[in-house]
């Protein structure tokens, strides 16, 4: 059964496709039906699509969002302008300010410098996805308590960077917080309070409220 699976037309077209490309995957011929199906999926994925809009499915905050997007649409654009998720902000649109920071499988990235089409298959978390059962997460709460914002435009980005840091480093030092937040800029100059908030959320708060956190 294993080896005598009839070649279906799909597998054939896969082979022809690969042949036209040159070397690879002679092994596909003897592969199990299941593998052939997986290979087929890959073959389809190797097709050129666009430049017109194509279906794109994003997994944002645990929900599937189906969109029709041109390949050139950035993840930030897809969130803000095609999905009404305006939590991630657009500041520079050039990977220099951090306002658009979202989590990409738990790692903070700039949504402005990633194409939506390549975010498929990854878990995206925006600031809208942090609260659970109507309760803000500890970073958000610490931002309120430490008055870590003025206009608030940079806040979602900082909150995402710090949330990501605290997922892998439970008790960061002030220097580690600064390293993690170096890619986020606050135009209002709230950095000292933001640092306090991060440390508070991590439970490594400085003893005195008036203690000055120095920047090296």
């Amino acid at each position: 059964m294993k080896n005598s699976a009839p070649e279906n037309p799909g597998a054939h077209s896969r082979r022809t496709f690969l042949k036209s490309l040159g070397t690879v995957a002679a092994t596909a011929a003897t592969a199990q039906v299941k593998t052939v199906a997986a290979e087929l999926e890959k073959a389809n994925a190797e097709k050129i699509i666009g430049p017109d809009a194509v279906p794109v499915t994003l997994n944002v905050n645990g929900e599937k969002i189906k969109l029709l997007l041109e390949p050139r649409v950035t993840l930030l654009d897809a969130l803000r302008n095609y999905s009404s998720l305006t939590g991630a902000k657009e500041g520079c649109d050039r990977a220099t300010c951090g306002a658009c920071t979202v989590l990409f499988d738990d790692a903070p990235i700039y949504a402005c410098q990633k194409l939506a089409i390549e975010a498929q298959g990854h878990a995206i978390t925006t600031v809208e996805g942090l609260a659970k059962d109507g309760k803000l997460n500890k970073v958000q709460l610490a931002f309120i308590e430490k008055d870590a914002l003025q206009c608030g435009y940079c806040t979602p980005g900082f909150v995402m960077s710090i949330t990501a840091l605290l997922k892998k480093n439970f008790h960061p030092t002030a220097d580690e917080v600064k390293h993690a937040c170096a890619g986020n800029l606050c135009r209002c100059g709230c950095h000292p309070h933001i640092l306090q908030a991060a440390l508070k959320a991590a439970g490594v708060e400085h003893a005195s409220k008036t203690e000055v956190v120095t920047y090296a």
Binding site: G22, A25, R72
Partner: peptide, 16 residues
Amino acid sequence: AFQYATAHSTSSAREL
């Protein structure tokens, strides 16, 4: 606007 493709082998990447 541009076209887009995902390559799964170096030879198809070159072709694409």
